[in-house]
């Protein structure tokens, strides 16, 4: 566990950079984490992040790719284009949620 300066705030993060306290998250923090991942957030990214946020609040877990397809209406191709090299992991990190714990 560590503390990190993100967007001018002191944020608690795990060793691999996932936020520990979601209440410390806001849109500026998201943009800063995204920038570290080499991603500039657009409306399309926000659609994914907002779905993760909504779904996490309902289900208590980061949705997998299939759930993002079926429930969120976001295609696999779109996910990999928006968040290259690991869409669920990267999107969860930017959305301020824990590292996804599912294999699929």
């Amino acid at each position: 566990m560590a503390e990190k300066q993100i967007a001018g705030k002191t944020i608690e993060v795990t060793d691999d950079g996932f936020m520990v306290k979601h209440e410390q998250w806001d849109r500026e923090v998201a943009a800063a984490i995204a920038a570290e991942e080499g991603i500039e957030l657009t409306d399309d990214h926000w659609k994914v992040l907002e779905f993760i946020d909504k779904d996490f609040k309902e289900k208590g877990a980061v949705p997998g790719i299939r759930r993002m397809n079926k429930v969120g209406g976001i295609s696999t191709k779109e996910l990999y284009t928006l968040f290259p090299d690991g869409p669920v992991k990267k999107a969860a990190k930017i959305a301020g949620y824990p590292k996804p714990a599912s294999c699929v």
Partner: peptide, 18 residues
């Protein structure tokens, strides 16, 4: 229940994932 897709859908997912 675990959101593991049927084979045809899974194959499509892997393909779409590159």
């Amino acid at each position: 229940k675990l959101d593991i897709p049927p084979v045809s859908e899974f194959v499509e997912m892997i393909h779409d994932a590159g």
